[in-house]
Nucleic acid binder design. Structure first.
Length: 114
DNA sequence: TAGCTGACGAAAA
DNA sequence: TTTTTCGCCAGCT
């Protein structure tokens, strides 16, 4: 297996993010871990940054860091859009941080578990 | 071409 | 316990 379409690390990240159910959030580390590169949590965030290079919309607002902080909000159309989107899904966000983050946390390795 | 940055995370001190 | 440093890999200048 080499150079498979699914091999696209970024593409895989987008797929997982899209699989995140509405009203739930995941973390970069969880996605990285699910992809088998827990140590490369940074690449997951990079994938989001490069999401603009792809034609598929990626709900990056459902992806937050390990603390539940909307670290990537700054990369959205507006720094407040991310929080608005999360609140719209029923997630309480306070000071750019998700309340009861653990309650909303959605781990692909646990839910999608192959 | 080579080097730096970058939406994080975990381990070590 | 908290703070600091290193590691990850790919994209961009």
């Amino acid at each position: 297996m080499k150079s498979k379409p699914e091999s696209d690390f970024f593409y895989m990240v987008y797929e997982v993010v899209r699989l995140v159910p509405k009203g739930r959030v995941t973390t970069y580390g969880a996605i990285a871990k699910y992809l088998g590169m827990k140590g490369s949590s940074r690449m997951v965030g990079w994938a989001m940054n490069s999401s603009h290079s792809h034609h598929s919309p990626v709900p990056a607002h459902r992806v937050v860091n390990r603390e539940g902080l909307l670290t990537g909000k700054n990369h959205f159309a507006t720094p407040t859009m991310m929080q608005e989107l999360l609140e719209k899904e029923g997630i309480k966000v306070s000071k750019d941080k998700i309340s009861n983050f653990k309650n909303y946390f959605w781990d692909p390795s646990e839910e999608l578990k192959l």
